[in-house]
Design a protein around this nucleic acid. Structure first.
Lengths: 213, 213
DNA sequence: ACTAAATTTAATCGATCGATTAAATTTTGC
DNA sequence: GCAAAATTTAATCGATCGATTAAATTTAGT
């Protein structure tokens, strides 16, 4: 298995087609036929390469997860002096910028961010896999930073503050289909995203009484 | 049509069953058989009373929407003097409290809030209906308040600030299946929700330089 | 209680789902 | 370029989907 060159190309085409469709219609409603059609491949190849529909969707999740794993927060804030208030403020900003990059960077296919978070909405095997391979790591990275800023935060409050910091980004990703029409824009403009990031950063800097600049 | 007493009871049972299932698995994956089974009714009744699966799901949406329509923001902040900073601050708090009540009040069935926002995630007829009957009204109410607080806000920035104000509540509703396990709690505790609301209010009071108390 | 209308029920329709199979084709090492 | 392995393909499987139908039952006015 997986000996010939064409195998990889087929698998990638199926993953990308499945990811696109999942982003458009949701993981639960994507059919093997629609995937095969968009990928220009055969239904049988889904089962040959992945074992079935569910395993292909899991592969989609792991494919996107790799992008998050390859860009850990640690490497974004490696040169920040977390002992200093100004270093903490800069690290907080970079945490927001990184998260926004992961969700809105237009060099990434849109389905990367669209496909990811939705699996958290309902109980499913994919839900558990996502929590294990992405969400836990993301929370731990951010919570580690928040603890440097305020060591009094309990485990409960760390969960809350994770959401206070990043939920505007998450809602802008999840509900872009509802928000963009209100903005009369086809995609978020660079200026709008900049304002979004700035406001996320500012309100957290205010919350932790860190220097605004 | 709709002449006998039993008709209303059957329709309500079907709406509630469909709402529960939609909240659990998503609108797209709910089947007529599952709805009929949970409601203790017959599949044929779905088509008899509503015309089909899609129309029943639309009825579910309108049923929940009525709860939002019956509790407009205006009546929550009617006695706030929006000309005064303290009145603006109090109105902002009540806007957050109201939204949290709509999403987390445990006197409402959980599926009310779980079912609502998910339809905004993908293009669909339900998506458009929801935007028309709920989302536009909610945005207008909050944006009207925000304009009283800061009349310089552009239409674009009003959209952004709506999300800055309320997105922590939205993510806590949408992702409760992912957040609650991190809190090791079956449901959000009263204390946690209080902290969530307080933080939402505080960060917006700080943003608009309104008095904290 | 009778009757006509409204509602509920069980059975069945064609379409489409994920999955499987065996044959056809392509790829790679030699 | 040959042979063996890997991959792709088309056809088909049973299960389940939303929808429909006609018969059975229930309801409400008289």
């Amino acid at each position: 298995m997986s000996k010939y060159q064409t195998s990889n190309k087929t698998q990638l085409a199926l993953i990308e087609a499945a990811g696109e469709l999942a982003a458009e219609k949701g993981f639960g409603t994507v059919t093997t036929r629609a995937i095969a059609d968009r990928a220009g491949e055969n239904i049988g190849s889904i089962h040959y390469h992945f074992g079935g529909r569910d395993q292909l969707l899991e592969a989609v999740l792991r494919y996107v997860a790799q992008d998050w794993i390859d860009n850990p927060l640690d490497q974004y804030i490696a040169d920040c002096d977390l002992a200093e208030k100004t270093g903490q403020a800069e690290a907080l900003r970079r945490a927001v910028v990184r998260f926004a990059d992961m969700l809105f960077d237009d060099e990434k296919p849109e389905w990367h961010s669209r496909a990811v978070y939705q699996v958290l909405q309902y109980p499913s095997p994919l839900h558990d896999i996502f929590r294990e391979i992405i969400m836990n790591r993301e929370h731990e990275q951010v919570e580690q930073l928040l603890l440097k800023i305020d060591s009094d935060l309990s485990k409960e409050m760390l969960v809350l503050h994770f959401n206070l910091l990043l939920s505007p980004l998450i809602t802008h990703s999840d509900y872009r289909g509802a928000i963009l029409p209100r903005l009369n824009q086809p995609t978020y403009s660079r200026e709008y995203l900049q304002a979004l990031v700035d406001q996320c950063v500012e309100q957290s800097l205010l919350r932790y009484r860190l220097p605004l600049d």
